[in-house]
Every structure is written in C-alpha cells, then in structure tokens.
Amino acid sequence: MSQTPPSRRGARSHKTRLSSRLRAWARHHRAMLVDSAWRLVRHPLGNLLTMLAIAIALVLPAALWLTLDSARLLDAELEESATLTVYLAQEVDDVQAGRIEQAVQAQPEVAATRLISAAEGMAEFQQALGLDDALVGLADNPLPASIVVHPTSPEPAAMQQLSQVLGEMSGVDDVRLDLAWIERLRHLAELGRRLALALAVLFGLGVLLVVGNTIRLAVESRRREIEVVMLIGATHAFVRRPFLYSGAWYGVGGGLLALGLLTLGNHWLSLPVSALAASYGASFSLPQLDLAGSTILLSCSTLLGWLGAWLAVGRHLSSIRPR
C-alpha cells in the first residue's frame, strides 16, 4: 500500500516579474507625487513663503535675460544701421556721381547703396535744422553729393578696410565712418551677457540653498519614520523619493510665482517706458516671456528644486542609522 508523500511546509522563494516591479515602481511614484503635493497644501503659508523666496531669486536673472533679448534686437537694428558715408568731390556732377555709385556698388563688400545728390542733401539739411529761411539767400550749394553705403559685414575691421578701398576711388573726397559707438554698444552687450550669467549662477545657488534647507527640516521632522522604513529594508531611493517630489513642487511653485511677478512688473513699467521712448521720438515696448521662455524658466526652477532636495536628502540620509 503506497503512502502519500508528506506535504512540504516552510518559506518559499518567489521571483517577481519585471512587469510587476515596473507597475509597483510607477504606483509608488504616483503615490509620492500626490502625497508630497498634499503635504505642501496642508501647510500653505510656510510653503508659499518658500516658493516666494525661490521666485524672487529667479526674477532678476529672468529680467536680465529679457533685457538681453531686447539688446539682441537692438544689435540686429545696429547691423542694419551700420553705414559708411562717401562724400564726392565738389566738382562731380550728377552723371559722374551715378557712375561712381555703380563702381561702389560693384564692390563685393557692399550690400546696398543710396545716392544723395547735392540738392537732396541741402533739402535734408534744411529740414533737419529748420533753417529754410536762413539758407535761401545762398548763391551756391556748399554741400557735395554723397553715397550712403551699407556693407555686407558690420564688423569694425571689415568696415575699416572697405572705407580705405572707397577712399582711394576717383572722384571721392572723403569717407566718414564712426566706429566708436558701435564698439561701445558691443562692449555693453558683452558686459550684460556676462553679468546675466554670473547672476543666474549666484541666484541658482540661492535656490539650491533655500530648497535644501527646507527639505533638511522636512527630513528631520520625519526622522523616526525614516528609521522605521529603513529598518524593514527600504532603500535610500525609496526614502528619498517623496522629498525629491517635494523639491520639484517647490521649484514649480517658485517658477509660476516668478512668471507672475515678471508679468506684473511688465504691466507696471510698460506705460512709463513707452512714454519715455515717445519723448525721444521712438517706439519701444518691454519684452515679455513667450511660451519657450516660460517653459525654460519653469524647467530650470523645477530642476533646481529637485537638485536641492536631492543634495539635502542625500547628505542627511548618510547620517541616519536605524536602531
């Protein structure tokens, strides 16, 4: 008579499928995302102040970035306004002036030319200075014909070389080129770029410090909870995850507040800036962040918040030992 083998009892090992692990990993990420947001909502005042500090640290670099954007537009207009004025000899008539203009336009470094006759030059001079009555009695026109030359390259070295070439042409009396103001504007633009980069780095470090200090306090307040979960086998990545999401939420909130502050500042300053530009006979409006700029600002603030939380949690987890 055969006997039934006794059933085996005890612990059994079971391999978890990769798909199950991925689903559990995704569920935990969703849970931590919602839980970290809920913890911020439960203490709105203190967390709002933290986000406001982040926003203030982001506003100044963003405002300088907008200023540099407007400076780049000004630099594009500068390239269009970079011209040379070729003054022809007094004895050159209109026919000869047309031939000289064709010779100037044939130069490979010249993009476009405009011939101003002596009569047109006198008319523009009278209109600019308002001396119509005072110049009526002149017997002869003292102004020569001139050619306004737009070079292909606004670089000072290229314009200087073109000025020398045009000055050696027959019938040309003088070539006027003012490079000092172009150089000053280029130096100011470079200074602005370096200043914006330096401030962006400094205020980015400020955001890291604000988020890191806030997360450090959160880690200390949940120290007992962290010791318990680490005692039952939780990894550092598991413990770090909710704090990383908290840091990211701080970054998102600070970025949104920074966008709001930039919009309010733009509306507040737009009217006096427009009035100041109109007093100089120009039209200028303050630049605003477009969709791409807003996305970059939010992405940078979120990344800084996440990085600050990661640094703070990693530093404090190394000092926590479950007992």
Rank of each mutant, 00 (worst) to 15 (best):
L191R: 12
V201M: 15
A31S: 07
E227C: 03
G251P: 00
A218G: 04
A157G: 06
L179Y: 04
P272F: 02
V175L: 04
G137V: 12
L271H: 05
V313D: 01
A198F: 15
L84A: 01
T83V: 15
R8G: 08
H28F: 12
H316D: 11
V252F: 12
V104Y: 05
S81G: 06
R186D: 14
R72Q: 15
A63V: 00
S283E: 13
A106W: 14
P6R: 14
L276S: 07
R99Q: 15
L297G: 07
A198G: 15
V92Q: 05
F284V: 02
A277G: 03
R222Q: 13
T50E: 04
G167R: 02
R240A: 01
S20C: 06
W306K: 01
L22Y: 10
G137K: 03
G206R: 06
A123L: 13
R241M: 11
L307V: 04
A200L: 08
G204N: 10
R315M: 12
L22G: 04
R9F: 10
R99G: 12
L68S: 02
P272G: 03
S274H: 03
V95A: 13
V207K: 00
I232R: 08
A103Y: 06
S81W: 03
A282I: 00
L208R: 02
V149D: 00
A134K: 14
R224D: 13
L289V: 06
E77S: 12
A31F: 11
A26T: 09
R72I: 04
V165R: 14
S285A: 14
S319I: 00
L264K: 08
S36F: 11
A234R: 04
H316W: 13
A309V: 02
